[in-house]
Nucleic acid binder design. Structure first.
Length: 337
RNA sequence: GGAGGUGUGGCCGAGCGGUCAAUGGCAGCAGACUGUAAAUCUGCCGGGCUAAGCCCUACGGAGGUUCAAAUCCUCCCGCCUCCA
């Protein structure tokens, strides 16, 4: 069963999707998106979403499930992924998680604490206070209500300071005690983890090339359309790298070349952060993304082995059920290659 | 040909006699990360060491003035602007 769930991870532009597609086609698998932005409808080119043909050729899950204004989160992903995985397992298919959102994967792999979702009212109040009082004041407040978390966070970490305060205020219980009750690792979904990577320089070049190709495929038109359709510039989906920069360009706030350079750079830094994250994640088997043949073969082998042990198990059960006592021994776990 | 300006670490850009291996910013590198995570944040960032200290090489090049120069002077080289 372990061998029937896979996760293909690694930095952006390493070729995770392509490998997943090939693997899925070979073993009749289904792809589960583990990416924070591919969930948004209409944000296709810049998020490197699989094409419609690709999505038709292999079942895909957790793609295009939200409107740009809706919020996604690690917890939400984890819940939905559990469901999808259970479903795929029930159908006896191989599940292939693909994505580069480290926290999301960890939430699934290690079980994220059951924190309350973001509370809009509390959040709005905090934003007002941030505006009027400033971050240092909010940090001091956090140090009072949740000293453990305050100690952990940087004084300039607006995002986490707000979230920690939000949890404490909304639930009356500090974030640190929520986490203490169920830290990472308390529950887990086991799977085979495959990491795809490239030497830094090669990866950076690949990113530049891919950004260009996204433009050639009409990325700018896509952004233009989203704006025309009335998608708010501040909606969650617009935090995807590139989209914001193209909006600035389309709004006439910067030159095309400036925006382009910015997009490439941001993507590189993102890829670097992804590598930092996955590097320390335990249990990932790394492969050079330039030669995925071996990796693919290895994954297929794992599936075959899993199938065989499954067959052997079924055979054994059948044998026992027939209880013919001295019948010839049926299927055995070994076999040809 | 004449007048003026300018040349700083990978890039941009401060500094204009000592407290300068040189403020900032960018890029780069490393790290953190519990519902915004493609987000957010932190550290390092000339080289070498028996590293909270020391040594070396550095502010276009060569000289010079000073106890002391990226900072002042002379010449040379490159770039820019204006007048011819």
């Amino acid at each position: 069963m372990l061998s029937r769930i896979f996760a293909i991870v690694g930095p952006t532009a390493a070729g995770k999707s392509a490998l997943a597609l090939e693997f899925a086609a070979a073993v009749g698998g289904e792809i589960v998106n583990a990416d924070a932005l591919q969930v948004y409808r209409g944000f296709d080119i810049g998020t490197a979403k699989p094409s419609v043909e690709e999505q038709r050729s292999v079942p895909h899950h957790l793609i295009d499930i939200l409107d740009p204004a809706e919020r996604y989160s690690a917890g939400e992903f984890s819940r939905r992924a559990h469901e999808v995985l259970r479903d795929i397992e029930r159908r006896g298919k191989v599940a292939i998680l693909v994505g580069g959102s480290g926290l999301y994967l960890r939430a699934l792999w290690s079980g994220i604490a059951p924190l309350p979702a973001s509370d809009a009212a509390v959040r709005a109040m905090l934003l007002v206070r941030l505006e009027s009082a400033g971050l240092p004041v909010l940090f001091d407040e956090l140090a009072r209500v949740d000293p453990a978390t305050a100690r952990r966070l940087g004084r300039g970490d607006t995002q986490r300071i707000l979230r920690a305060l939000e949890v404490a205020l909304a639930t009356g219980e500090p974030l640190s005690s929520w986490i203490a009750r169920q830290p990472f690792g308390a529950s887990a979904v086991a799977m085979r983890k495959v990491g795809l990577t490239l030497p830094r320089g090669v990866l950076y070049d690949a990113i530049a090339v891919r950004v260009r190709s996204m433009l050639d495929r009409g990325w700018l038109d896509e952004v233009r359309e989203l704006l025309e359709r009335g998608v708010e510039r501040g909606s969650p989906a617009f935090q995807a790298i590139g989209y914001r920069q193209w909006v600035e360009f389309l709004d006439g706030e910067c030159e095309f070349e400036t925006a382009l350079q910015r997009v490439v750079t941001l993507t590189r830094r993102f890829a670097k952060r992804q590598e930092t994250w996955f590097r320390k994640e335990a249990g990932i088997v790394w492969w050079d993304a330039r030669s995925t043949g071996e990796c693919l073969a290895s994954m297929k082998e794992m599936v075959e082995m899993a199938d065989m042990t499954e067959l052997a198990r079924i055979a054994k059960m059948t044998e026992q059920a027939e209880f013919t006592g001295s019948a010839e021994p049926a299927g055995s776990p070994d076999g040809g290659g």
